[in-house]
Simulated scan of single mutants.
Amino acid sequence: MNDADIRRYAGLMEELGLTGLEVTEKDQVIRLERTPAPQAPVRETVTLPAAPAAEAQPAPAGAGTPVCSPMVGVFYAAPAEDAEPFVQVGDKVKRGQTLCIVEAMKLMNEIMAEVDGEIVEICVANGQVVDYGSPLFRIRER
């Protein structure tokens, strides 16, 4: 078997969409294999009606001072799964009081209140992943 025969069989494989071919001539056995060319995924285009522009609403007066996450991690509202949360909406807090835990790289980082005040909003859910700078709480200062 020569180069021309092998090229002819390779062309036949492509034409028929085969990924493998074994040819026996006299005492020679030739096995040709190829990986099929990847096919581009079929994408459907869907046209959605234009959504009305959302109007920016200012934060309510006295919405409070945000307490933001100092790192990327997982927010935990309580010290343990079956424990009470550190704080709830309406709780009075003092500067330095633990508000939550943000787990980052297997380290539990306590997030403390930086001001005295009242918790007016908890911005994230327990177990939610938070980004650096994400608001965790809002505290109305006293």
Results as ranks from 00 to 15, higher is better:
A59E: 02
M105K: 09
V102E: 01
A50H: 14
C100V: 08
V42K: 14
P49D: 15
I122S: 02
R43S: 11
V120G: 01
A80I: 02
E114L: 06
A50G: 14
L107M: 10
C100I: 09
D82A: 09
I101N: 03
Y132E: 10
V42H: 13
T65P: 00
D116Y: 07
A51E: 14
A104N: 07
G96L: 10
R95P: 02
D27P: 05
R43M: 13
V115W: 05
P66M: 01
E84W: 13
R34N: 07
M112F: 13
V102C: 03
P70Q: 08
G17P: 11
L16P: 06
M71I: 10
T47V: 15
G73H: 06
R138K: 03
I30Y: 01
R43W: 14
K94I: 08
V46L: 14
G62A: 06
Y9L: 06
N109Y: 06
R95K: 13
V130T: 04
R142W: 07
E44L: 13
A59V: 04
V89L: 07
A77S: 13
C68Q: 08
Y9Q: 03
E81W: 07
A50M: 15
E110C: 10
D116V: 02
L32E: 00
A63W: 00
Q88Y: 12
V89H: 06
L99T: 01
G117R: 00
A56G: 10
V23K: 00
G133S: 08
V102A: 04
V124K: 04
R95C: 09
R43T: 14
A40P: 14
I30E: 00
L21P: 03
P85R: 12
S134L: 09
F86K: 04
L99R: 00
A83H: 05
K92S: 11
D27T: 11
N109E: 07
A78S: 12
G96S: 08
F86D: 02
K94D: 05
E55P: 10
D131H: 14
Y9E: 05
M71K: 08
G62Q: 04
Q128R: 06
M71T: 08
D91V: 11
V115R: 05
V89Q: 05
T98L: 12
R31Q: 02
E44F: 10
A54V: 13
N126D: 13
I119K: 01
L136F: 07
L107C: 03
V23H: 00
E121R: 02
I101F: 02
A40S: 15
R8I: 04
A63V: 00
Q57A: 13
D82G: 06
N126I: 03
A51G: 12
R7C: 03
E22Y: 01
L18N: 07
E22M: 03
I119T: 05
L136C: 05
E141L: 03
T45P: 08
A125L: 03
E14C: 13
R34D: 04
E103Y: 05
A4N: 10
K106S: 11
E103P: 04
C100N: 09
A80S: 08
L21M: 08
T65H: 00
A53E: 13
A50R: 15
G62D: 04
E110N: 15
V115K: 04
R43F: 12
V89N: 04
A53S: 13
Q97Y: 06
T35D: 11
V42S: 13
M108V: 08
V42A: 14
A78Y: 07
V67K: 00
P85Y: 11
G117A: 06
V115C: 02
S69C: 09
